[in-house]
């Protein structure tokens, strides 16, 4: 069994520790004897349609996000869309999450047209509005009610359409827009979230869900043997406490 990961724009959209997600996916596969490989796909590169089980897109600053948005639509959009329809896993955080929606309307400048893989839109309410920053804890029905912990830092407010389900409900923090208590968006095996940077290391249940879903398309129902997650559990618990203390 092997897990083939494609990291989109690893040096353009890597704002804050995003590679922690790649490290966690690779290690949690390898610790179980599953071969794992990661291929970087950059600006200007064409995408090989059938070569990957999981795509990851990180976050970036405005300028980088605009560069990526144009390239994503022009060079990679068609392939990603077909892959998503075929059940390939796509995980996007922060700026990458916004690009999976229909559009991102920045504080100034033209709209960034997204890929439309998730039924959502994002609007930045203007430079004087406050950024939504801090530790965040959500409860995810997708993961059987487990908590997912992380850190968010975004100006844009995202609203889900009827075609996307939230990844979870906000217990602490802001989430998609700071108003409706939803966080993230999911449609089939496409996952987007504002929990940026190293989301996966501290949330092993979510990581394993992604690995299982990614392998499932080629290998059918996959059972992942349990790992010793005591260190993960400690880090997860301390993040929940930290968010509660704020």
């Amino acid at each position: 069994m092997d897990l083939r990961i494609c990291h989109l724009y690893p040096d353009l959209l890597n704002l804050y520790g995003d590679r922690g997600n790649i490290i966690a996916l690779m290690n949690r596969a390898r610790w179980r004897g599953i071969d794992a490989s990661v291929t970087d796909c950059r600006l200007g590169d064409a995408l090989d349609g059938d070569a990957y089980d999981l795509y990851f897109i990180g976050g970036g600053e405005d300028r980088q996000q605009r560069l990526a948005a144009n390239d994503l639509r022009a060079r990679k959009g068609g392939v990603l869309k077909r892959a998503a329809e075929a059940g390939v896993v796509v995980l996007a955080v922060c700026g990458g999450y916004q690009l999976l929606g229909h559009y991102y309307r920045p504080a100034d400048g033209d709209d960034l047209v997204g890929l439309g893989l998730l039924d959502l839109t994002t609007v930045h309410p203007g430079p004087s509005s406050r950024r939504l920053i801090g530790n965040i804890v959500i409860r995810s029905t997708l993961l059987g009610g487990a908590t997912v912990v992380g850190f968010e830092n975004h100006g844009g407010r995202t609203h889900l359409g009827p075609g996307a389900a939230p990844l979870g409900n906000v217990m602490r923090g802001f989430g998609n827009n700071g108003e409706d208590h939803t966080e993230g968006g999911v449609s089939r095996n496409v996952f987007g979230t504002y929990l940026h940077g190293p989301l996966l290391p501290k949330n092993p249940l979510f990581t394993d869900h992604l690995i299982r879903s990614a392998l499932g398309r080629r290998y059918g129902q996959v059972t992942l043997p349990p790992l010793d997650d005591r260190i993960e559990a400690e880090a997860h618990a301390s993040a929940v406490l930290r968010a509660a203390g704020e």
């Binding site: 804050y16 520790g17 995003d18 922690g20 530790n135 850190f151 940077g197 190293p198």
Partner: peptide
């Protein structure tokens, strides 16, 4: 992760 450190410790993964 106090204010003067930056409250976001995501950078540890960089």
């Amino acid at each position: 992760d106090l204010t003067a450190d930056g409250r976001d410790i995501s950078w540890l993964w960089d």
